[in-house]
Computed example of a mutant assay.
Amino acid sequence: MTTFYFLQISFVLLCITRISTLDCNTLHFLHNKAIQENLQVLDQMGQQFPEQCQNEKIHFKFPEQFLKLREKEDVKASVQEILVQIFYIFTKNLTLAAWDGRALEKFQNGLNQKIEHLEACLTEKIQKKQLYSRREEIMRLKLKKHFLNIYNFLKDKKYSLCSWEIIRLEIRRCLQFIVKVTSRLRN
């Protein structure tokens, strides 16, 4: 009888392991849908871009190298870095942002779930002794610099309503870049 239960448990663990491996290999399917949902929630968080903020608009130069990534592992590492940086920004001094609290929480939770999933995939890679490539490290550093510029903009503007709305537009753009790059992976 004990052997029968042991076999059942082993079978379930084998299935779970196989499913989690498949998840890491189907990045574009899983994340494009989730990113699209996050884009919708990002739109639900606030209203249209405030007219009084039109003069303050700024364009942040997103690292073009991200858009040129072709290797699945490079994309995974970069997407994870982008999501971590977005999550970090959206946990800082949100008092002046006039956003729907429930939508903001849903946005943060969605980001956190995707970060954890990618972290598990990347941890699996590291456990297999496949450390980050030089290309992945360079891309991560460029992304960190990009998001540091965004964070510094918020600080310089004292987390004003307009600065948060500008950042919301920029984060929307970043999420759209993720969709664009991960969609290309399936082709």
Rank of each mutant, 00 (worst) to 15 (best):
Q48T: 14
K33Y: 11
N38E: 05
E136G: 05
K155G: 02
L143S: 04
A103G: 04
C121H: 09
F11V: 12
K142D: 15
Q80C: 00
Q80V: 09
E37P: 03
R140C: 02
F90M: 09
L42G: 04
C53T: 09
F90Q: 03
M1H: 14
L161H: 14
D74V: 09
S20T: 15
I178D: 12
T21H: 11
F6V: 15
F4K: 10
F29G: 11
G110V: 00
I35F: 13
F87W: 08
K129P: 00
D23Y: 13
I82Y: 02
T17F: 11
N93A: 00
L161S: 12
H31R: 07
H28Y: 14
F49M: 10
I138V: 02
L30V: 14
P63N: 10
S183I: 04
A77R: 11
Q36H: 12
G101I: 03
I58F: 06
L30E: 11
E51Y: 09
S163H: 05
L169R: 10
K114L: 06
L131G: 03
T26Y: 13
Q108R: 13
M139E: 11
K68V: 04
H28M: 08
D43N: 05
V181W: 10
Q52W: 02
L143R: 06
V79D: 08
N93G: 03
Q44L: 15
K180I: 11
K157V: 00
F62R: 13
L104E: 07
T91V: 06
E51C: 00
L122D: 03
L104M: 08
Y151E: 15
I115A: 03
I89Q: 07
D23R: 13
C174H: 14
I58R: 05
P50E: 12
H117T: 11
I167P: 01
F177G: 11
S78H: 11
K155S: 08
S183E: 10
T95F: 05
L143P: 01
K129L: 11
I9D: 09
I82C: 12
T2C: 14
F6N: 14
I9Q: 03
A120P: 01
M1K: 14
Q80Y: 09
T21N: 11
E56S: 08
D74H: 11
N149K: 15
R102V: 05
K180P: 01
S10I: 10
C24A: 07
F60G: 10
F6M: 15
L131R: 07
F66V: 14
K157N: 07
Y159A: 01
V12N: 11
I115T: 01
R18G: 12
I166Q: 03
N109Y: 02
G101E: 00
N187R: 10
N152V: 04
G110T: 01
I178E: 13
I19F: 07
L83Q: 00
H117A: 09
R173F: 12
R70L: 08
K158V: 09
R184Y: 08
L27G: 07
I35N: 09
N25W: 09
E137N: 00
K68A: 07
T17S: 12
K57S: 03
V12F: 14
K114I: 04
L131N: 06
